[in-house]
Lab assay of single mutants.
Amino acid sequence: MLDDRARMEAAKKEKVEQILAEFQLQEEDLKKVMRRMQKEMDRGLRLETHEEASVKMLPTYVRSTPEGSEVGDFLSLDLGGTNFRVMLVKVGEGEEGQWSVKTKHQMYSIPEDAMTGTAEMLFDYISECISDFLDKHQMKHKKLPLGFTFSFPVRHEDIDKGILLNWTKGFKASGAEGNNVVGLLRDAIKRRGDFEMDVVAMVNDTVATMISCYYEDHQCEVGMIVGTGCNACYMEEMQNVELVEGDEGRMCVNTEWGAFGDSGELDEFLLEYDRLVDESSANPGQQLYEKLIGGKYMGELVRLVLLRLVDENLLFHGEASEQLRTRGAFETRFVSQVESDTGDRKQIYNILSTLGLRPSTTDCDIVRRACESVSTRAAHMCSAGLAGVINRMRESRSEDVMRITVGVDGSVYKLHPSFKERFHASVRRLTPSCEITFIESEEGSGRGAALVSAVACKKACMLGQ
């Protein structure tokens, strides 16, 4: 009897593995994704193909990295998701002549009506938060230079001027797309009239992360975010950046690689679950690469896999709870928690219980395998993109072996128990001629924006502006 049951459990697990095998990517698959990513990057950089390229390769006008001589107080704003952060950054000489960066910050959550109302409502709310922060720190009387981390696709015309191309991540505030974001912020500050600010720089969160990590390690020339969304930036040779005049030196390019796949480059790798996630998203047909990796989508992918296993009578005796059938019910943090389970399955059992399920031991094991399959594919897909960037940098610099540091931020990278190990191992397999160091950014977005502002202020002083 026991043997029969054991055989049935083994057969069930084997069927589960057959279904989950769809998520496995072979090294040849990853090399294919990497080569296609490089081709799209090239198209994004070139003037004649930029418009139709899915990977936009947006110039950021960040050319210099901090040298350690900029000092002063800077205000930093960070808008990239449902939370908005205001930070005071003091850049100065530390002990023994070292450079020191001290920060104080406060988080504000953005109400739904500000995210989806008008641009005026959104930026009025942001300036209200700045006003509140300055009151708390008794700094209303000071006109501070301000660095703005704005983590949406922007076409820069200068370091302090950028046109919002399109909202992502659930934002829909009308009247912002096609307009200068810094102008919208300046107008809102003017409307309030109770404080003055000098907006000197606007950067993407990947750029802010790279600059913040450069402060720790001067070989950091790539910034990457794996959180709600997924994106990367890197220092490109100016001669390859056709959208900006000049051939000397390097400029940081914001790849906006989340949109890779929007022209069909990933079609052969998309599964039924991916198509369902895409169809029910706020932007169907867009940001397809990001939807395979980002935390906004990972939990939902797992939920759809679990429903398939229920329908195949391989999980929960073929019956799903009402909660499990509800879109968004299986949160991405559950994926991390399930994979963090120590082996007694308590954590998995508790999560499934909150979803109205009474799982068996085998159910718990199957749910864990589903989570591992989805998150491992995410790590491997992400590795193909980064390997594409790094191999490109090595080739354009004609280096036999390139040493490089990548600064990384984002909740999936930082909080998932195995993502970074799987990701690092896969990147290294795909970049055999590179020695890569990964560092995690601390308060990256805010500190990085302030350091970019410090560079901009120093330049302005040198130019006598």
Rank of each mutant, 00 (worst) to 15 (best):
residue 2 L to H: 12
residue 4 D to Q: 04
residue 4 D to S: 07
residue 5 R to M: 11
residue 5 R to H: 14
residue 6 A to Q: 08
residue 8 M to R: 07
residue 10 A to E: 15
residue 13 K to H: 09
residue 13 K to S: 12
residue 14 E to K: 06
residue 14 E to S: 13
residue 14 E to C: 14
residue 18 Q to P: 07
residue 20 L to R: 00
residue 22 E to I: 12
residue 22 E to V: 10
residue 22 E to Y: 07
residue 23 F to G: 01
residue 24 Q to R: 14
residue 25 L to E: 00
residue 26 Q to P: 06
residue 28 E to M: 14
residue 28 E to N: 03
residue 28 E to Q: 05
residue 39 K to Y: 15
residue 40 E to Y: 01
residue 44 G to Q: 02
residue 45 L to G: 00
residue 45 L to H: 02
residue 46 R to F: 05
residue 49 T to R: 02
residue 50 H to Y: 13
residue 51 E to A: 13
residue 52 E to Q: 14
residue 52 E to H: 07
residue 53 A to P: 01
residue 53 A to R: 02
residue 54 S to M: 11
residue 54 S to N: 11
residue 54 S to Y: 01
residue 62 V to C: 14
residue 63 R to I: 08
residue 65 T to E: 13
residue 67 E to F: 10
residue 67 E to R: 07
residue 68 G to E: 15
residue 69 S to A: 10
residue 71 V to H: 03
residue 72 G to Y: 01
residue 74 F to R: 01
residue 74 F to M: 14
residue 74 F to W: 03
residue 76 S to N: 11
residue 77 L to W: 10
residue 77 L to C: 15
residue 78 D to P: 01
residue 78 D to S: 13
residue 80 G to S: 14
residue 83 N to Q: 08
residue 88 L to P: 03
residue 89 V to A: 09
residue 92 G to A: 08
residue 98 Q to C: 10
residue 101 V to H: 10
residue 103 T to K: 08
residue 104 K to L: 12
residue 106 Q to G: 08
residue 107 M to S: 13
residue 110 I to Q: 05
residue 110 I to E: 01
residue 114 A to R: 12
residue 114 A to T: 10
residue 115 M to E: 04
residue 118 T to Q: 15
residue 119 A to I: 06
residue 120 E to R: 07
residue 120 E to W: 07
residue 122 L to N: 05
residue 125 Y to M: 04
residue 127 S to N: 06
residue 128 E to W: 04
residue 130 I to V: 09
residue 131 S to V: 15
residue 131 S to K: 11
residue 136 K to Q: 05
residue 136 K to D: 12
residue 139 M to H: 10
residue 143 K to G: 10
residue 145 P to Q: 02
residue 146 L to G: 14
residue 148 F to T: 06
residue 148 F to N: 03
residue 148 F to S: 05
residue 148 F to D: 02
residue 151 S to T: 07
residue 152 F to G: 14
residue 153 P to Y: 07
residue 153 P to K: 13
residue 154 V to H: 09
residue 154 V to M: 13
residue 158 D to L: 10
residue 160 D to T: 04
residue 160 D to G: 13
residue 161 K to A: 09
residue 164 L to F: 12
residue 165 L to G: 14
residue 166 N to E: 13
residue 168 T to E: 15
residue 169 K to Y: 11
residue 169 K to A: 06
residue 172 K to I: 09
residue 174 S to D: 12
residue 175 G to M: 07
residue 176 A to T: 11
residue 178 G to K: 14
residue 178 G to F: 14
residue 178 G to H: 09
residue 180 N to T: 10
residue 180 N to H: 08
residue 181 V to Q: 02
residue 182 V to A: 15
residue 182 V to F: 13
residue 186 R to Q: 15
residue 186 R to E: 13
residue 188 A to I: 07
residue 190 K to D: 06
residue 190 K to Y: 08
residue 191 R to T: 04
residue 194 D to F: 14
residue 194 D to K: 11
residue 196 E to T: 09
residue 198 D to H: 10
residue 200 V to F: 12
residue 200 V to A: 08
residue 202 M to I: 03
residue 204 N to F: 06
residue 206 T to L: 03
residue 207 V to W: 03
residue 208 A to C: 10
residue 209 T to E: 04
residue 209 T to D: 01
residue 214 Y to R: 09
residue 217 D to K: 03
residue 217 D to V: 04
residue 218 H to Q: 11
residue 218 H to T: 07
residue 222 V to P: 04
residue 223 G to L: 01
residue 223 G to R: 01
residue 225 I to T: 13
residue 227 G to Y: 00
residue 229 G to H: 02
residue 232 A to Y: 07
residue 233 C to S: 07
residue 234 Y to T: 04
residue 234 Y to V: 01
residue 235 M to F: 07
residue 237 E to M: 04
residue 237 E to H: 08
residue 237 E to V: 06
residue 238 M to P: 01
residue 241 V to W: 01
residue 242 E to L: 02
residue 242 E to Q: 04
residue 242 E to K: 01
residue 246 G to P: 04
residue 248 E to V: 12
residue 250 R to H: 11
residue 252 C to M: 02
residue 256 E to A: 07
residue 257 W to G: 01
residue 259 A to C: 14
residue 262 D to A: 15
residue 263 S to T: 08
residue 263 S to Y: 04
residue 265 E to L: 07
residue 265 E to P: 02
residue 265 E to I: 05
residue 266 L to V: 14
residue 271 L to D: 00
residue 271 L to M: 06
residue 273 Y to T: 04
residue 273 Y to L: 05
residue 275 R to D: 15
residue 276 L to K: 05
residue 276 L to N: 13
residue 278 D to G: 01
residue 280 S to E: 14
residue 282 A to M: 05
residue 283 N to G: 05
residue 286 Q to C: 15
residue 287 Q to L: 13
residue 287 Q to C: 08
residue 287 Q to N: 15
residue 288 L to W: 11
residue 290 E to H: 12
residue 291 K to H: 00
residue 294 G to Y: 05
residue 294 G to A: 14
residue 296 K to N: 14
residue 296 K to F: 14
residue 297 Y to G: 05
residue 298 M to S: 03
residue 299 G to E: 02
residue 299 G to C: 04
residue 300 E to K: 01
residue 301 L to S: 06
residue 302 V to C: 11
residue 302 V to A: 09
residue 307 L to G: 08
residue 307 L to A: 12
residue 307 L to P: 01
residue 308 R to F: 04
residue 309 L to H: 03
residue 311 D to E: 13
residue 317 H to L: 09
residue 318 G to S: 09
residue 318 G to N: 12
residue 319 E to T: 09
residue 321 S to I: 14
residue 324 L to T: 03
residue 324 L to Y: 01
residue 333 R to F: 05
residue 335 V to E: 00
residue 336 S to N: 14
residue 336 S to Q: 10
residue 337 Q to M: 06
residue 338 V to M: 05
residue 338 V to L: 04
residue 339 E to C: 06
residue 341 D to Y: 06
residue 347 Q to I: 13
residue 347 Q to T: 15
residue 351 I to H: 01
residue 351 I to G: 05
residue 353 S to G: 12
residue 358 R to M: 08
residue 358 R to S: 12
residue 359 P to Y: 09
residue 360 S to P: 01
residue 361 T to L: 04
residue 361 T to W: 14
residue 363 D to L: 00
residue 364 C to W: 03
residue 365 D to K: 04
residue 373 S to I: 14
residue 373 S to Q: 05
residue 377 R to P: 00
residue 381 M to V: 08
residue 382 C to M: 08
residue 388 G to T: 08
residue 388 G to L: 02
residue 389 V to M: 11
residue 389 V to I: 12
residue 389 V to K: 00
residue 391 N to V: 11
residue 391 N to G: 09
residue 396 S to V: 14
residue 397 R to I: 04
residue 400 D to P: 08
residue 400 D to R: 10
residue 402 M to H: 13
residue 403 R to G: 07
residue 408 V to Q: 00
residue 421 E to G: 13
residue 427 V to H: 02
residue 429 R to T: 11
residue 431 T to R: 00
residue 431 T to P: 00
residue 433 S to G: 15
residue 435 E to W: 07
residue 437 T to C: 14
residue 442 E to V: 09
residue 442 E to W: 10
residue 442 E to S: 06
residue 444 G to S: 08
residue 445 S to Q: 15
residue 448 G to A: 10
residue 451 L to F: 14
residue 452 V to K: 05
residue 457 C to I: 12
residue 457 C to A: 13
residue 459 K to C: 05
residue 459 K to F: 10
residue 460 A to V: 11
residue 462 M to Y: 08
residue 462 M to I: 06
residue 463 L to S: 14
